[in-house]
Write a protein that binds this DNA or RNA. Structure first.
Lengths: 367, 367
DNA sequence: AAGCGGTCTGTTAACGTTAACTTACTTACG
DNA sequence: CGTAAGTAAGTTAACGTTAACAGACCGCTT
């Protein structure tokens, strides 16, 4: 009497065995409507015996919702994205939604693919945490127009009906740079973008603005790394970029005294290059990262960096999305920007500053 | 004549506008069967105009397959898992499948939840890369029994109809330890497990066996870190564990001369603790990690570690799964184990060894 | 001219579930 | 004792798609 495992058990199968109609079984499974206690127990027993699993496809088709949310991120293995997804999941779970994650590997093509997959499989909503791209934005706009609830995290894209949670990376970059300037640095490099591509990166804009506001010149040769070919680079390999970029900077006849790295991984690669060159940090070269990944406090010297409120952004985006899913899909856009915090650690702080405070602005000699 | 964005466009809508039946539209959309060129073009035009998106639920329900595969991983932000998922996706994409990822955060409860979600939404197969747990294994067995194709990566769980790809971490751990022993170390610590929990960790078993085979005693006090409370720890925070563990080891009256860390993050935390204690690596303390994450070659000193063939495992698991999805779901289990490579870098190699080779076995003084 | 294979399109009936409605029986109360 | 409210089921018809089959027409062979 062993059954073929091929065909999954359906409500009808259970109904037959329990001498009721599929509708009654449905009521039992969903605990909705009236069912007599005896019947309920009988049905439940049979369902368990037959190892019933509900069919989400049929259910979703009929009910027009799947209790599922998709999230698109550019790069797994990025502590920032990890924390984001964790926060998103937390919120969704409280509301009974399941999170499915798609990875775009930072390419526009797979970004679009991910949107399509999620939309086609009728996710109730989509959270987008990937970098903007032309084709991605277009497809996104199409989906939003056709009624798919969308919530963005730090993506440079606006739409009337898509909410946005982001960090104030412009200010973060500004403060990081200002921090270095206040330490007396006048020649500050940036690792991780090309000048042309960089304009899309808010923290880089902050860097430029800070230099300008303090009357410092932007030197092309101090801006290194970043490939112009569409940034097809998974974040995890950016330490390579940091190492290479810093190596390039060190070869300059007149090298910078401080460096702002695009993110902490880049900073760690740079850190390594500096050490290999037998230079002292921060005495010979100060360095600042971005994101405050867990490792940042575990390098030596510990990395000065900028923390963005990751959990908050994730939770916020999830809440925005749920409001849209469960409420009016056409409601006007909401946008929330979270402030960033400068986390000062050793990589920008001279040892003597650590003990004696005061006299902050000080000239640091160029090498 | 603007339409309500609420109701998604269906084949019937297109059919009406294009003066054909839904079946014909279906044929056009799927490029199957005969359709006259004129008709095809007309239908395609209308479909594009109306911004049609196919309904994966209805499609999956009717066709009994969703062209979707689910993957469960314990921890996003783990370079190992990232590389795995990348490889899996690669293979799946070649075969027209979409990958959805679920995160279990290393808890059994969410492991089970992820399995359920994927099964309920009728993923065509599931790739499992999480650590084994009792409840997880049970649910997994149920699903496999009821015909869901499952492929495992490095999970300590066997089932007649679930394939397995894994790395030989026992041997990896053995070789790592042997490497240290050959460098003359006699007191070798392990950071990252408790003695009781550790028996599930193959690389730790390798450590124990290597010690035994070389006539070295296992000292309880040299084995630190790892919490007994179900290992609820996301990998990204393991640098904390490395730092704390190493700190504990350094406080011992008779500290080890070498340390094997559970993974590279742990090793990096330990590295940091050693530096803070102003000890030299590897002179005072040699250290070896595991996984060879990209950062491992960018620490200073660069980290000796064990590399597992990550891409290969991912591709293999995906191929196993596809064979099962597209072929006989009841075919006997296939299992493939990949060898690991010891990657010797600076953290276990004395500087003088780097220049002059030879005379490998040498006594290293205890501090 | 009958018949055959190829082309094009339409019809029907599911896939598994559930919203909405209907039926029937029970109890409760003025 | 009639009727309203509550309980416990069953019936019907979708949700959007497609497999399977059935026509209808074409040109081509024999």
């Amino acid at each position: 009497m062993k059954k073929q495992p091929k065909k999954p058990v359906t409500l009808a199968d259970i109904a037959a065995k329990a001498a009721v109609t599929p509708m009654t079984v449905s009521r039992v499974i969903n605990s909705s409507g009236y069912v007599h206690t005896d019947t309920r127990e009988r049905v439940m027993r049979v369902a368990r015996e037959m190892n019933y699993r509900r069919n989400g496809l049929a259910r979703g088709l009929k009910r027009q919702c799947t209790e599922t949310v998709g999230m698109v991120i550019g790069d797994i293995a990025n502590p920032f994205a990890a924390e984001l997804s964790r926060a998103v999941r937390e919120v969704l779970e409280e509301h009974g939604y399941t999170l499915f994650i798609c990875i775009s590997e930072h390419t526009a093509k797979e970004d679009v693919q991910a949107f399509d997959s999620l939309a086609d499989h009728r996710a109730d909503g989509i959270i987008v945490a990937t970098r903007a791209s032309k084709s991605g934005n277009e497809r996104l706009a199409e989906l939003i127009d056709s009624g798919v609830p969308v919530s963005l995290i730090g993506r440079d894209f606006r739409h009337e009906h898509a909410d946005l949670a982001s960090a104030d990376n412009l200010k973060g970059g500004y403060e990081a740079t200002t921090h270095l300037i206040e330490k007396g640095h006048k020649r500050i490099g940036f690792i991780g973008v090309s000048l042309t591509q960089g304009l899309r990166l808010r923290r880089f804009q902050g860097y430029l603005e800070a230099l300008k506001d303090h009357g410092l010149a932007v030197e092309d040769q101090l801006i290194v790394g970043g490939r112009d070919i569409g940034e097809q680079m998974p974040g995890y390999s950016t330490e390579e970029m940091g190492y290479d970029g810093m190596t390039k900077l060190l070869e300059l006849p007149n090298r910078p005294t401080a460096v702002f790295a695009r993110n902490d991984f880049t900073a760690m690669g740079a850190l390594n290059a500096i050490k290999r060159a037998n230079l002292r940090i921060p005495d010979d070269l100060a360095i600042i990262g971005y994101d405050d990944i867990p490792l940042a406090s575990h390098t030596s010297p510990a990395l000065t960096t900028v923390r963005q409120p990751t959990r908050e952004q994730g939770r916020c985006a999830a809440e925005f999305l749920l409001r849209r899913i469960e409420g009016d899909r056409e409601q006007p856009r909401v946008e929330k920007t979270f402030p960033c915090d400068l986390i000062v650690r050793e990589s920008t702080t001279l040892l003597r500053e650590l003990t004696s405070s005061g006299n902050r602005k000080r000239e640091i000699k160029t090498a």
